[in-house]
Each structure stands twice: as C-alpha cells, then as structure tokens.
Amino acid sequence: MGFLGIQGGGGGGFWLPRAASTGAAPVDALFYFILAISVVFFALIVGLMIFFVVRYRRRAGQGPQPSPAHNTPLEITWSVIPLAIVIGIFAWGFKVFMDLATPPANAYEVQVTAQKWSWLYTYPNGHVDDVLHVPGDRPVKLVMTSEDVIHSYFVPAFRVKRDVVPGRYSTLWFEALEPGEYQVYCTEYCGTGHSDMLSKVVVHPPGGFEKWLEDASNLLNTLPPAEAGERLYRSRGCIQCHSMDGAAAIGPTFRGLVGSQRVMRSGTRLVADENYIRESILEPQAQIVAGFEPVMPTYKGRLKDEEITALIAFMKSLAGEKGEEQ
C-alpha cells in the first residue's frame, strides 16, 4: 500500500496528518478505503482509455470496426457494481460519523467563544485563555458559540470540525491519545484575520492539567501587574489587532499609547489616559481613532476591573520613545 501513501501509526503520512485522537483511526481507515477504491477505478478507466487510444488510433486506410452500440448486461453491471460500492461507503461513513457524534457523559467541558479573530476558552472555574489546555486522560467536550459571524473549529490531528454559529451553541468532542500540542484552525471564512485565527490544543499528561489550571487562574495574584497584563493581552485576543512593536494593524499599536495625543475620526484630539483606555475597552465604538475601522467587540462584562488595570500597566510598560507616537 506504499504507493497510496498510507502510513500506519500516529506519525502522519503523505495524505493525512498525525492521528492523535481516539476518533481519528476509524476516519483514516475509511479515507484509505475510499482512496483504494478510487485508485482502482481510476486505473481501470484511464488504463482502458489509453489502451483504446493506442490500440484503435486512426491509421491510414483503416476505419472503425463494427461493434455494438450498446450492451445491456454490461451497462447494468457497470451501474450496479458502483452503486453497491457507494452505498457501502455511505453506510461506513455514516456509522463512523454517528459513533463520533455523541460526547461521552464523563467529558470535561470547556466553553469556546469565537470572535474576529481569536478563540477564547472559558474553563469551568471562570478562567479564560487563548490556548485550549485539556487533560489527556479523559474526553473533552467543547460548547462553542460565536460573538459575530460564523467561524468553524478545526483540529486536523483529531479529525474534528464544527461550525461555530452566532446565536446558537454547537458542540464537538475528542479524546486525545497522547500529550502534545495540536494546531487549531478557523475554517469558515470570517474576514481580514481569518487565516490568523489560529489556536493550539495543549494536551497535558495525567495530573498536569489541574496544576496548569490552578496556576493560570491565579496569575493576577502571583504576577506583577504588567506581566499579568501581557498574559491577558495574549490570551484575550488583544494581540490579534494591536501590536506591541509600534506597527499599526487592524487596531492602533499599544506601544507608546498611554499618554499620547490621539486624533479621532470626528476630528477631536484627546490624550490617551487611563480613563480613555478603559472606555476604549468597554465601549469600543465610543471613540474611534482616525484611520481605523470600528470593528472592535466590547469587553464589557468580559474583563474584570483588576484585569483592565493589569492591561493598562502592561501598555505603560510599552512606552515608546517620546515623540514617536502619532
């Protein structure tokens, strides 16, 4: 089967990436079965085609030979055999799909919120993070919804994908086979940052997840404010639109922001002090800096006061050279 690019084990092959969940193996088996069927039929048709073209190519002084214009038994055969095969593929595909449709009752549940252009994971204790950390020794169920447009949650290594739709919840589950980091993509087109709407699943070895969750939930108390702010900057999606290095992206950079003069769309000028930053986080549409679009979602109810304070401390730590703002 080498020519089909099939590789056993979890290493990943020519066709499919590493298979890292309990649900991946049955999907892969079906994939390779269809691949084998396809190769056989393709070889048959193209082989015959090439054979006929060569064998019956036009030659001087030789016309077509008499042959029937139809043959009922032959035509029935080549209709019924493919029909039986595709019904088999259908049944197999449906069975695997249904086996993977229902999450086990003991699944660990994480809430997922999609927004342009980041994934936020909310753990049962209220902690929010931008990387999905999960225990490696039990199934995980994601309950997902979107704040704005439709997104889609895709983990290739787990062979799972589900649309994330505003106004409703969709679910997805998996059970990882071994600890490690796995890539997450958004696969429903959602605008400018669609291809950067990436995330990771970190599968912890037994016991590791609980320890991580405890540390992560406590960062405001254990870290200096600016450092905690930087964690929040990365984990709450700010980083998707606001750079640290002075380059304007979808939103203004955070470098040198605090204390700088800002020119608004309306033409007014104001100083970006703490209250302005706070307002911009909670009421993003209230003041839009000239040159940017009003696309930021509100963080009202999603960031606590001390978190905003930590973020402002982080921004202050990014103070740029005097005069380079604007």
Binding site: L16, L30, F41, F42, K161
Partner: peptide, 20 residues
C-alpha cells in the same frame, strides 16, 4: 479524479475532516 474525490466528501466521516 474530480468525481472520485467526491466520494471522500460525500461520506460523512471523512467530510468532517476535509470540509473547507
């Protein structure tokens, strides 16, 4: 080739991985 690769996408389980 186009038709045969449709089989991968018509089957529910493999389509989940290959969709989009």
């Amino acid at each position: 080739i186009g038709g045969l690769t449709g089989l991968f996408l018509g089957a529910l389980a493999t389509d989940v991985h290959l969709h989009d």
